[in-house]
Amino acid sequence: MTKIFKHVQSTVVPLPIENIDTDQIIPARFLKATTREGFGNNLFRDWRYDNQENPKDFVLNHPTYSGKVLVAGKNFGCGSSREHAAWAIVDYGFDVVVSSFFADIFKGNALNNGLLPVQVSDAFLAKIFEAVFADPLTQVDVDLENQVITIASTGEQESFEINAYKKACLINGYDDIDYILSHKAEIEAFEAK
């Protein structure tokens, strides 16, 4: 049973960097846990803290920015397939990641954990960054049912795509395994071939 997701309105955390890989989101040395919880503390660990654990100048350490929506540069989540990256983002408290391009495996992992990846145009992404840097209290509104993202202060909107099956899973909290197991007879027939 995945988390149920419908609608989020929130301030955002801006991260205008391209090609953020999953090794940055959660470095390998933190992958030794055998449960899904607690990864949020180590989200962007090496960008947040130096070797002596002192906070660095990084947006997550910046009291100006907070919220449930992470907005990042293009090709977000490239690299390793580690689902820990999605767990860390969720555990930290984000419900949505906005970027103009997502790596494939990350996108799937996010959707499987109730984290909505919203892919927008480069132009719209630039508008969000612009609005947030002008006013850190800027909110975005993410409406999954209608597949629309809106910058609340300006009313600018863009629609986004999502696989219809995955959308239904998010809205209803369905699980892929239940869906596949409903094909048990077909699996057995396939194996008998």
């Binding site: 397939s81 689902e83 820990h84 495996i105 799937g108 499987n112 954990n113 395994i177 596949i180 699996i187």
Partner: peptide, 22 residues
């Protein structure tokens, strides 16, 4: 191809993977 841990669970449980054709 590589998969995430939720999908590892899926394949362990069903020997199948839910996947859109690239």
């Amino acid at each position: 191809f590589g998969i995430g841990t939720s999908q590892v669970e899926q394949v362990l449980a069903t020997q199948c993977l839910l996947q859109s054709r690239p």
